[in-house]
């Protein structure tokens, strides 16, 4: 079927719900009927995790640490409190630790047991972070993983992998890119990528 025909079809017949959709609807209806779930609360949660809680939160934390040495010290000493001071707290961010990249050490975060991830600063995890290949390879062959992400580090750089096996959640504080002295905190935050805060990437360079 050509794409054109496909589009012609859509206004007439709604796509039939998949078996998974039916299961999800059935479970939601039952949990609502039993008094465990308020569907209006689900709408609010979905909006929050789709539009408000995401890696732009973490980017603000990183940019602030780049600009304010006091905040950087606080972040490295008590990340949970420092991050909460910017308004980012709560579920899957209750016990935060920030780990700082330096010319000698590059940090990378994984959860080999499941998919633990710092939701309060990075939002919901990307699919690859939850996938078997990343979980298995990050701890054993971090340089191979980094190469797939386009990151090549000098052989002398020590790679430090943090496997989130309990309720502590890790945020990588990447190195501030060179040539960014003239940028504002807000402009710096735009250089901070999600992957640079997981440790599978580096911040974008200044334009």
């Amino acid at each position: 079927m050509s794409e054109h025909e496909h589009h012609d079809h859509e206004p007439h017949a709604q796509r039939a719900p998949s078996a998974l959709e039916m299961r999800v609807r059935a479970l939601e209806a039952l949990l609502t009927e039993k008094g465990y779930i308020d569907p209006a609360a689900l709408d609010v949660l979905i909006d929050e995790y789709q539009t408000k809680i995401g890696p732009r939160n973490g980017a603000q934390v990183v940019a602030r640490a780049w600009v304010h040495p006091e905040f950087r010290r606080w972040l490295l000493q008590d990340a949970t409190a420092a991050i909460a001071s910017l308004g980012f707290s709560g579920r899957q961010g209750e016990h935060m630790v920030a780990v700082e990249n330096t010319p000698e050490v590059h940090n990378m975060v994984v959860c080999t047991l499941c998919s633990c991830y710092p939701w309060s600063v990075l939002g919901l995890p990307p699919t690859w972070y939850k996938s078997a290949p990343y979980r298995a390879r990050a701890v054993k062959d971090p340089r191979g993983v980094l190469e797939e992400f386009g990151v090549q580090l000098p052989q002398s750089t020590q790679i430090r992998i943090w496997d989130s096996t309990a309720e502590v959640r890790y945020l990588v504080l990447p190195q501030r890119p060179a040539g960014t002295d003239h940028l504002s905190e807000r402009e710096l935050a735009n250089l901070v990528t999600r992957d640079s805060m997981i440790g599978t990437g580096l911040p974008a360079s200044a334009a």
């Binding site: 999800v24 479970l27 939601e28 949990l31 779930i37 308020d38 609360a41 949660l45 979905i46 995790y49």
Partner: peptide, 10 residues
């Protein structure tokens, strides 16, 4: 998203 929100809400 519905499943994510249900798990969080439960």
């Amino acid at each position: 998203p519905r499943v994510m929100a249900m798990v969080v809400a439960m």
